[in-house]
Amino acid sequence: MQAIKPITYNPKIGKEFSTTLNKRVRAYFKENNISRYANANMKIKTIFMISLFFIPLGFLLSTLVQSIWLTGLLYFIMGLGTAGIGLSIMHDANHGSYSKNDKVNKALGGLLNLVGGFAPTWRMQHNVLHHTYTNVHGYDEDIQPPGVLRFSPNEERKKIHKFQHLYAWFFYGLMTFSWITAKDFKQLNRYKKMGILDTEKDSYGWLLTKLIFFKVVYYTIALVLPMLIIDIAWYWFVIFVFMYHFVAGLILALVFQPAHVIPETEFVDTKGETSIDNNFMIHQMQTTANFAPESRILYWLIGGLNYQVEHHLFPNICHVHYKKISKIVRETAKEYNVPYNSHTTFFKAIAYHTKLLKSLGRA
């Protein structure tokens, strides 16, 4: 693995669109005297999502639970809490959009470490690679899944991919399970070779030390201590931990995949070049999609990430504002003839994602 070659965009193309859009969004916050960070609604959601994980965990670490089925239910709820923390709290915090206080962002972003992931490698994959090079072949790891899946027409097609629209859902459920096994270790070593560790302030040795420490903490609180406290067979805990991560992984995948891997979004292959002849913001519009924009419940539960277009344009704005600024983005895109991809419902977005999986598996 060689050091990554940074790719540049052409700011002259579509400059008027990006300048106008940025100006209008800034004006929205200024004219309404609104902070771009978390509001009261966001803070209430934070308490709810954190409780959804740590209250069940607290019961598991007490002596009050000795039933197999109650234990399983608590782990299931923890899976929902893990997804909730990932989508609604740590995502904003690790983008620096939760609070103007960096310490608050770091603390809330670090919640990922306690639910099985590792915040530094997540930021490198998500903030650096995915957001900078969305749907760019060889750069965006979100469209470079394990070999049994094919998310981009620029990736090699294998015979097994013919059936990926049927079996992909199982592998989606393994997303956070990979967090608690080898993924973070592999990423840390890979990112060192790619030369992007400098986006974090810590050295490789210190990052590795913290990674090992938090994995030990996670396994202790999520598996070892419950096994010692609850009087049921050990294998139930293995089953339940797998189940709760499968629930969390599937939810996360079902939110993120329809945002970039659908027929309407574009996939870019630079063919070795270190520049993309496109405006960065227009590139984000072409490679990203929204879904279910009218669903208030979904908007609240998944951290506003049904407005992925707005998130990719303004990752430094807390998600509670996406619905309001989406009107500005949509109207400006129409004015400048820039695509604004959006599906009316969540299930329609999933159907189109499935359609592309099937197409990529057969062509």
Rank of each mutant, 00 (worst) to 15 (best):
L254Q: 06
C318L: 12
I239R: 09
Y133D: 06
Y191D: 15
T354A: 06
N279G: 09
A40Y: 05
L74F: 13
F171Y: 14
F170S: 02
N94H: 00
A292Y: 04
R157C: 00
Y204M: 14
F213Y: 13
L301T: 11
L197P: 01
K100S: 13
V261F: 05
I317R: 06
K355A: 15
S178M: 11
Y340G: 06
M194T: 10
I47G: 02
N10Y: 03
K30N: 04
L188M: 00
H260Y: 09
Y219P: 14
K355V: 12
S342Y: 07
V128W: 09
S295C: 15
K334C: 04
I160Q: 07
T121I: 11
K186E: 04
V216A: 10
V320A: 14
T354G: 00
E16P: 03
L298S: 13
Y75A: 03
A253P: 11
K159V: 00
L298E: 10
V65I: 14
Y191N: 05
A289G: 09
T288I: 07
G96Q: 12
F314P: 12
C318F: 09
L254T: 11
A233H: 13
Y299H: 05
S97L: 09
L112T: 03
L228C: 12
K158H: 14
F256N: 10
T8L: 01
D202Q: 13
T274P: 01
H283F: 11
